[in-house]
Every structure is written in C-alpha cells, then in structure tokens.
C-alpha cells in the first residue's frame, strides 16, 4: 500500500488529523476505516499516548458532535443512555438524552465499569438506538464509538467478555511514538494547543455518502472465498480454542471494503483483507491455554494464518 494514494477526501482528513496526532498514520487510517464501515474501534493502550486526542481530532475533522464518557465503577447504564425525568409542568415523563447521543463517542477506560453498564453501551452500539421506558430513541448517524482499554491495570477492572469484544470492528494498539515523533510533539505543544486549531474538513453529509460508497465497493467471489478461507482456518487452527464467528467474516469483509475505499479503490484486493485482518480478527478468537503458555498472542496466530493461506491470484 506504500505507493497507493488515498481517496482525496480521506487524504484531507488524515492530513488534518496529523496536525495533532504525529506518526500514527496506521491507527488514524484504521480509525477512519472503522468509521466508514459503520463499525467501532477498541483502542487498547496505556494512558497518555494520544487516544483521546485522536478521537477528538477525528470528530472535529468531520464536524461531528463529540461526546466523552469516562467509565468508572459506579457508572450506571442510565448514565449512558439517558433517563426519563418527570416534567411537572407538562405532566409527563420527558426523555433526557444521555452522553451516547452523539456522533463520535469516546468511551474511556471501558473496562473499569460494571458489566451491566458495559452491556448498555455495547447494546446501543449494536442496535443503533437506546430504549428507555419502552421507547426506542435512534442514535444520530453517523454513530462511531471509540472505546479505550488499559491493559496494564487489573485491579478493580471488569474485562470485557469475549462475546462482547466482537462488537468492535477493529481492535487497535496505539503504541508509543518514536524519538523524533515525540520531539515533534513537544515542539508543537510548546506554545499552542494544536487541537484547537483543527478545522472541519468533511461535512457529516459527505461522511454519510462515503459510508454509502463503502457498501458499493465490489468484492469478487475469489476475495470472498479468501476471507472465508482465513476465517475457517482460524476455526481449525491447533492453537485456537474458539475461532472467528460468521459475524467476524462479515466484519472482515466490511472492513476490507472500507479499507479499499480509503485507498480510493472501488474493489477489494487481498491486500485489503490481509491488512484489516490483523486488526479485525485477533480479538475475535480465544487461544488455547497451552498456546498462551508458549508465549503466542492472538495477533501472532492470526499473522501465521495469513501467511499460510494461499492468496487467490488467478481467475
């Protein structure tokens, strides 16, 4: 993908975001992929590497409504979805929308809250609406959740169950910046706050249209076969206890479609699939304990499956 140009709109978005986020083009791109595919991203990394900044920059670039929910152990589901409050003047219950009613949501430290609250968020993500007191309120479109998770602290956390992890389209690790990148960060933040200078470059309408285009990206029979081949190999792989579900195949294809569009193509090539597979599949499998003891990670196993699966190169 080294030489391939981005879709022009997306190129401006990435450029814009990179005013704030330095040297994280892959994460940026993958976030946009998830946004276009209508999926959500789970960012897993230590605090302070710019997760929040990324989400805010993304939200500002698309001129979207940005909401942030800080998950704490005492957070209740209604703190997310909103509650009905009795309006004595009008004599009826009035729905007060929760913080979830936004376009771009940053769900910070999602594993710190109780499973009940986590479930409320995930349900909203899956269904695209919240139900309060029997009335369903649709979420605004586009709706994009970026949840973060701290892998270091285990005390007082509620790790997300595997079945819920696969509600996220991609799981991405942010990683530390390199030396020069970090110096550049210092330079930029020395006198100004770069996030304030970000201007919207894409309208919500344009974003919606891009999301529609993703669905029209052509996936050839051979590429679909390749996707299924990858997924099925994960089900029979000796190191994997639980393989990728059919929902995983769908997610992989959608992510690949979005990835193709990001690079301005209207058809999916195996490179798209391979690229997103490393982020769309690892959180959907459960390794066998012995594989974990061998020091294998889910990412390693998926990478191995990718190298072992023959790429379709002929009609």
């Amino acid at each position: 993908m080294k030489y391939e140009p981005f879709h022009p709109l997306i190129a401006t978005m990435i450029e814009n975001i990179e005013k704030v986020i330095i040297g994280k083009r892959e994460v940026t791109t993958l976030s946009i992929v998830a946004l276009l595919a209508g999926g959500h991203v789970l960012l897993e990394d230590v605090p302070g590497v710019g997760k929040t900044m990324l989400v805010r920059a993304l939200a500002k670039s698309v001129n979207a409504q940005f909401k942030r929910i800080q998950f704490t152990p005492d957070l209740l589901p209604s703190d997310i979805t909103g509650v009905s409050v009795y309006n004595p003047k009008q004599m009826h219950f009035e729905y007060k929308p929760g913080p979830i009613m936004g376009n771009v949501i940053l769900a910070d430290e999602i594993n710190r809250t109780s499973p009940k609250t986590q479930a409320a968020l995930l349900e909203a993500m899956e269904e695209g609406g919240v139900t309060v007191d029997g009335i369903t309120y649709p979420l605004p479109q586009p709706f994009f959740v970026m949840a973060t998770q701290n892998p270091i602290e285990y005390e007082g956390t509620y790790p997300l169950p595997e079945a819920q992890l696969d509600r996220f389209l991609l799981k991405v690790n942010m990683g530390y910046p390199s030396m020069t990148e970090e110096i550049e960060i210092l330079n930029r933040t020395e006198k100004t706050t770069p996030i304030d200078q970000i201007q919207p470059v894409v309208t919500i309408e344009q974003l919606r249209s891009l999301q529609q285009q993703v669905k029209k990206v052509y996936v050839d029979e051979h590429v679909k076969r390749y996707i299924v081949d990858l997924v099925q190999r994960s089900r029979s792989h000796p190191a994997i206890y639980l393989g990728v579900s059919p929902r995983g195949s769908v997610a992989l294809m959608k992510a690949a479609q979005a990835h193709a569009l990001v690079y301005g193509r209207d058809f999916v090539i195996p490179d798209d699939v391979q690229r997103v597979a490393s982020f769309a599949l690892p959180h959907r499998i459960i390794l066998k304990p012995e594989a974990k003891f061998d020091g294998l990670s889910a990412e390693d196993v998926i990478a191995r499956i990718i190298t072992q699966t023959p790429v379709p190169i002929r009609r």
Partner: peptide, 12 residues
Amino acid sequence: RKQGETLRQYAA
C-alpha cells in the same frame, strides 16, 4: 512468491 504473499507484495 510465498503462499500467503499478495501480488502487490510480490510485485514490490
């Protein structure tokens, strides 16, 4: 060309 190598990687 390795089995899991895409055409682009191979072309590169």
